[in-house]
């Protein structure tokens, strides 16, 4: 005879596991929030200064926020057009058999751990930049942007190609029958149809780029300065690279540690926002 207690017991065990899993992000958020209280209350608006000098009680994180923004915008401005036209080439011009091979290569690249991109950046990209631009060190915001572009490119091409491939051929046939050539079909029909999906994909890429640490940390120069806008060829710092490099150097009870936690909390904001905006996550499905 099945016992009611056993039934209930199973339900509670499963329910508890579910609760643990579902509450994880909330727990993480709360822990970070509590620990960053000091930063918000004691430093307050001082966080938005451009000087980071804990010894002199300066806790401005604007340089890091700016660094993150510059690096991500640079990466997107390179990767988005490149990915868009590559995806169009793959779905509209390349025969199916080739397409599978190329997409597999893209998947391989998307799975490479970011520390390895970091190694590539430090050993190959930075020296190359030193040569090309005749600068003393290649560890710059520019290097960070380029490396990030390389990292988000395969995923973007793959996702965008999926979007274009899934547009039924009837649309193309109908456009052709009206006398449009292939390029006109692409720009007047296929791209407008894919706008909203494409936008989601760009947001996803942006989210990944903002959270990237290992690769950026190694090539960015890790200098807490607010660089001249016209010189992305100067070293800088992003939120993630600052955390990666220096968190271990600060004492747990110090204000600067709390400010760092606040920065980690700031990193959570895009993730949560994008979680609201993007209903379907590719990695999971």
């Amino acid at each position: 005879m099945p016992s009611c207690r056993k039934e209930l017991g199973l339900k509670y065990v499963l329910g508890l596991s579910f609760f643990v899993v579902a509450s994880m992000p909330i727990i993480i958020f709360l822990v970070l929030l509590i620990q960053s209280k000091r930063a918000f209350f004691e430093v307050g608006w001082g966080l938005f200064s451009t000087t980071w000098f804990p010894a002199g009680q300066e806790y401005g994180i604007l340089a890091m926020l700016y660094g993150s923004l510059v690096v991500v915008l640079l990466a997107l401005s390179i990767a988005v057009p490149l990915a868009l036209f590559s995806a169009l080439a793959l779905s509209e011009f390349i025969p199916k058999s080739c397409r599978l091979v190329i997409k597999s290569l893209l998947e391989i690249l998307a799975g490479i751990p970011s520390i390895i991109y970091g190694l590539l950046g430090v050993v190959i990209l930075c020296p190359w930049l030193e040569q090309v631009f005749d600068i003393s060190t290649g560890r710059t915001l520019f290097a960070g942007g380029l490396l990030l572009a390389l990292m988000i490119l395969p995923m973007m091409i793959s996702l965008l190609e999926d979007v274009f491939s899934q547009i039924p051929n009837e649309y193309r046939d109908n456009a052709s029958s009206l006398g449009l050539n292939k390029s006109q079909t692409i720009t007047s029909l296929l791209i407008p149809i894919s706008k909203s999906h494409g936008f989601n994909i760009v947001l996803l890429a942006m989210s990944k780029a903002l959270g990237e640490t290992m690769a950026v940390m190694l090539v960015i120069g890790c200098v807490d300065q607010f660089p001249n806008f016209w010189l992305p060829l100067s070293a800088g710092q992003t939120v993630t690279s600052k955390l990666g490099r220096d968190l271990g150097n600060y004492s747990f009870y110090s204000i600067e540690f709390s400010v760092m936690i606040a920065m980690a909390l700031i990193l959570l904001i895009p993730t949560i926002l994008f979680g609201f905006i993007l209903r379907n996550g590719r990695d999971i499905k």
């Binding site: 109908n174 052709s176 006398g179 050539n181």
Partner: peptide, 12 residues
Amino acid sequence: LEQLRKHIGMVF
């Protein structure tokens, strides 16, 4: 091709 399809229309 484009001119041809201007002269010859198609309904699917």
